[in-house]
Amino acid sequence: MVLLIQYTLIFASVLILVALGGCFSEHSGVINIGLEGIMVMGALGGALMMKFLPAGTPAPVIILAVVVAAMGLGLVYSLLLAVAAINFKADQTLVGTAMNLLGTAAATVFVKAMNTAENVNNVSSTIQYIEPKKAFIVNIAGFEFNWFMLLAVIALVLAYVTLYKTRFGLRLCACGEHPQAADSVGINVYKMRYAGVLISGVLGGLGGIVYITAGVSEWKFENGVAGFGFLALAVMIFGQWKPTRIALAALVFGLFRALGNVYTGFDFLAALNLPSGVYNMLPYIISLVILAFTSGKSRAPKAEGIPYDKGQR
């Protein structure tokens, strides 16, 4: 049971971070389907940092360095979307999809090249981080508290305050609802959209590193992040683009995702003797069903997905 709570919380943290990222981007008016790719890049940045930090680095330094690396790479990678969608008015769905494919392919190529450079016979795309990973975990009576959980809560509070209580956040939302009106009162729509996308890059990258350190100590980059970025998008839609609701939705989805990891620990679930595939499918099925019921009265930002053209009023 403790294990279930632990996994639920850590997966929920990932979903909160990434869904909030999507939330910022969409409130500024840019659909970010590329969150999956951004997660992979953030994961890569964090994993590389863990691999190359010298052994014996104090834990707080490790945490800080890994978080900064993941956020930084996520930010840089999200520039790809920002430039294409904002300056070149590209189809946002297409570019996002390309970023997902590109993220996984680039990470695989990079990690494989790095591994073969170290050892000619090593053609895997796996990075190991058994030792540095311990820095993130504090064991409290059998419950492995992860610092990332705290980070997710901080991000949640910050996102809520930023979006609803600051001038910046309200302007950001205005650009996603009615960019022409925002522009007419002197808000620079392009800048705001850049801000939205880059924030989503930072949060998505952080989500990526949290995801690959949840429960495992090595990651095979060929697999990307197995659709978790899209699950986060579902959480965002289910949460109606509102931070507090996103947090609740993330907990629900996190629970179902966690079940897949720990179902063997429950006698009644193990007794059902279902193949593991069923548990793997579960979060996706649930999200599909929930989406079917909640999308009808969608509160999506009105202007999302439409490139802003200053000349069109």
């Binding site: 790809l80 294409a84 590109l102 392919a105 494989k112």
Partner: peptide
């Protein structure tokens, strides 16, 4: 690695 081809085709989509 063979994935360099995937990388190129992803770039082309982008």
């Amino acid at each position: 690695s063979a994935q360099i081809a995937d990388f190129i085709s992803a770039l082309i989509i982008y």
